[in-house]
Design a protein around this nucleic acid. Structure first.
Lengths: 126, 126
DNA sequence: AGTTGTACCATTACCATGCATGGTACATAT
DNA sequence: ATATGTACCATGCATGGTAATGGTACAACT
């Protein structure tokens, strides 16, 4: 498995890692049960901080693309291929788009929407 | 009609203006049809930029609290009192809260929600 | 001892945003 | 001329969030 990152790319490094692993899964270059390099190992290879790689792995595990087995390492999830299709990102976009377009129709300003959004995300009381 | 602003107050100046005019409406110190100072006039009295006052007036007109009649000036809207009750801000908060809590239940990260939100607000293609 | 994933603490730099400012211009009226 | 609301251009400043960095520590296993 070849993974590379481009620091000059505006795409965040942890996203670059995620996309490459997902791509390898859909192309069957990575098959279920196959081991992935350890967080520290991959971080070392890419000259990245281990936290950056850990973040990518964490998100991949949440989406059931990979499986972390503690001291035994990290492996491709049995249902990795099908879970690559489930687009959580798409659901997020769809849900937010619906809410935002509704609010815009109600006459809300983008500025007001942004402010209220920030309040909610920070659990502030408005 | 007495309006005053406090520059040291963390509340934005245009919000201070809006709140005071709304307050005056609910207290019947401002009644429908009554004229408001012109944008430039009020800006001059408060030592503010005219754009700041214009912003406050624009939002007040959107909420049907006041009515702008071009060169004739700005006046209190006939339904000002009742429209002071309709809380657009509350609607925004409610709509967004519903969407966000749903996404959080689906497993979405706050970070992901924020990114997608920014994409939508900027009409970027994701 | 060495490695695994994970969880905290923290800081730095960058970028987007909101607020307020300034200038200019327009049509429409007195 | 003067005044009205409104629309565009632009800037400086402060704020807040993300991304990425670093250090430390833990339990569990080889």
């Amino acid at each position: 498995m070849q993974i590379s990152v481009d620091i000059d790319d505006p795409i965040p490094l942890f996203v670059q890692i995620i996309e490459q692993i997902k791509q390898a899964v859909v192309e069957h270059n990575l098959i279920p049960g196959q081991p992935l390099p350890s967080i520290r190992q991959l971080a070392n290879d890419l000259n990245l901080n281990s936290k950056t790689v850990a973040k990518a792995y964490k998100l991949l595990e949440r989406d059931a693309i990979i499986q972390s087995k503690g001291y035994r390492g990290t492996f491709i999830h049995p249902d990795a291929a099908s879970n690559c299709g489930t687009n959580l990102k798409g659901l997020i976009a769809e849900t937010l788009e619906q809410a935002i377009s509704q609010l815009r129709n109600e006459g809300a300003t983008d500025s007001e929407i942004r402010i209220e959004f920030a309040n909610i995300m920070n659990n502030r009381v408005s």
